[in-house]
């Protein structure tokens, strides 16, 4: 459901809060928070921006959400286009598009069409996304289900299971730019690696991955991989520098 179609959204007012307060929630057009707010009831709006700290007890629904401060969502949340530069804690979260440069902790399930991750993402349940791009790090306890996954581990990334059509994990390589210097340096502190129990997909390309089982139609195991067992349908390439326990066709 699109919050844009809300019948009385056109006459709803804007809400801007500075300072510390409790608020009853409601329907608004634009909500911006610069102080510390505790919403006791449901909040529904077209755009939500939080530069301070907000705590939501009821349900949250917004077409556009941007968080530069800290946002805690206790109820069901539907964020539309979400961009996180600060910190977000939530239960089950659904989004159209999620850009995470900050830190996101989800005690439940994440549903989104597109996720772009540069920061840190922790999910205690499953993660259902159509397109997932990541340069950051994540820890997903359940299943990461994607159509198209392309990632470069920023440090240690973990997922219980990964399943999808196209799965590509590439090793970090040096690009030009000042930020890259810090990125490269942080590589000395953390090992950049993806760990998963099982990985299943149609097209799989892996580098620097540790997994118990990789199963796919066309599989390429690249440098730095440690895989206990590979099962493939049509094609399997294994790099000489990869450690693979056994590989079977079938």
């Amino acid at each position: 459901m699109n919050p844009n179609t809300g019948d009385d959204m056109r006459i709803a007012r804007n809400l801007s809060l500075m300072g510390t307060c409790d608020h009853g929630g409601g329907r608004f057009r634009k909500v911006s928070i610069m102080g510390q707010v505790h919403f006791q009831e449901d909040l529904r709006c077209l755009s939500f921006s939080c530069m301070g700290k907000a705590w939501m007890e009821g349900a949250f629904r917004s077409a556009k959400t941007s968080v530069m401060g800290e946002l805690t969502l206790e109820g069901p949340a539907e964020g539309g286009r979400i961009s996180v530069m600060g910190r977000v804690f939530s239960g089950n979260l659904s989004a159209q598009r999620l850009d995470a440069m900050g830190e996101l902790t989800i005690h439940g399930k994440l549903e989104a069409e597109e996720v772009k991750l540069l920061g840190r993402l922790t999910i205690e349940g499953d993660c259902n996304v159509d397109r997932f791009r990541s340069y950051g790090d994540f820890d997903i306890s359940g299943l990461l289900s994607v159509d198209d996954l392309s990632l470069t581990p920023g440090s240690r990334c973990r997922a219980g299971e990964i399943g999808g059509a196209h799965i590509e994990v590439r090793r970090y390589f040096w690009r030009h730019g000042v930020a890259e210097v810090f990125r490269a340096l942080s590589g000395f502190l953390h090992e950049r690696r993806l760990e998963a129990r099982t990985i299943e997909g149609d097209e799989i390309f892996l580098e620097d991955v540790t997994a118990e089982l990789v199963r796919g139609t066309r599989v390429t195991i690249g440098k730095g991989c440690r895989i206990a067992r590979v099962e493939y349908g049509e094609l399997c390439h294994i790099h000489p520098k990869a450690e693979v326990g056994e590989s079977v066709q079938g």
């Binding site: 259902n128 289900s145 159509d147 399943g163 999808g164 059509a165 997909g201 149609d202 139609t217």
Partner: peptide, 11 residues
């Protein structure tokens, strides 16, 4: 069917 389809349908 492919892995992709199966996971997509579940999703």
């Amino acid at each position: 069917i492919s892995y992709g389809q199966l996971y997509r349908w579940k999703r």
